[in-house]
Design a protein around this nucleic acid. Sequence first.
DNA 1: TTTATTTAAGATAAAATTGTCTTAAATAAA
DNA 2: TTTATTTAAGACAATTTTATCTTAAATAAA
Lengths: 144, 144
Amino acid sequence: MFSKATEYGIKAIIYIASQSMLERRVKIGEVVEHIDSPVAFTAKIVGALVKVGIVQSITGPYGGFYIDRHRMDQIKMIDIVTAIDGDSIFNGCGLGLKECDDEQPCPMHYKFVQIRADLKDMLNSTSILELAEGLKSGKSILMR
Amino acid sequence: MFSKATEYGIKAIIYIASQSMLERRVKIGEVVEHIDSPVAFTAKIVGALVKVGIVQSITGPYGGFYIDRHRMDQIKMIDIVTAIDGDSIFNGCGLGLKECDDEQPCPMHYKFVQIRADLKDMLNSTSILELAEGLKSGKSILMR
DNA sequence: TTTATTTAAGATAAAATTGTCTTAAATAAA
DNA sequence: TTTATTTAAGACAATTTTATCTTAAATAAA
Ligand code: SF4
Ligand code: SF4
């Protein structure tokens, strides 16, 4: 569904958020231990999320990554996905056609449109907070 | 949504089917002209679809590709997709986790499951015949 | 100030996907 | 039978994605 980069980004954010709820900053090594991802690649991805303001970071000893608690419910899944993969998942035709006549669509068109709308809806309505709380309460386990 | 290989495969099949409805066999060169795809790559993909019996072929002069008319409504989109990309799109978790506890799913789980079920449903219920008829009646244009 | 620790950034490498090229096999017509 | 045409198959190449490695910059503690 998503690229590896986006997958790692989502998992990293969920872990960082879950720890930020406990007032803990986390180092990248701790993150990848908990989400089972390659450390340098993950660092690059989380770095990109820092750049767009989804995550905060502090360099040096006692540094690490964290997420502002009061912003956790404002940051949605779609922000992470688009920050890493862009919005190409939501645009264009499922068959890869450049443009199609909306007035004479193929048999799959409206189903495609609906499925993508549902996906977008889900990403738009699910916040980091919700997912982090799921992790905190042991509902979802990032490792496996 | 799908890989390039699958995209080309779908478009090629639709074109071949639309011509088979007119009792025409088509050469690979004609196919790629109409679907705007790289010829050798497309040939390889269509060849794979021949192997699994979705398309028929005849070598030599006056040869080409065609699809049995009476099978067009039996061949569904899902057959093409799985023949090329396998069934990985339908399996596993959207977050890339290996396995998750069904009894304690994350907040996105059921939405993910539903979206994928819808996608699978669409591919299962849409036949080559429907898409080829759409093309024949000028409803969908493969080139753009 | 010096040192150790950590993120930041960018070069490099490996793997997967996409795409090309060459040769072989099949087959129909001359 | 010979030739031309077409698919079949597999080697090769380019591109994109994924992953690693190295060095720089920031910063906190000693
Ligand atoms: S009509 Fe069909 S082919 Fe055209 S954009 Fe919609 S889904 Fe794609
Ligand atoms: S519960 Fe969430 S993380 Fe687990 S398999 Fe379902 S969607 Fe994936």
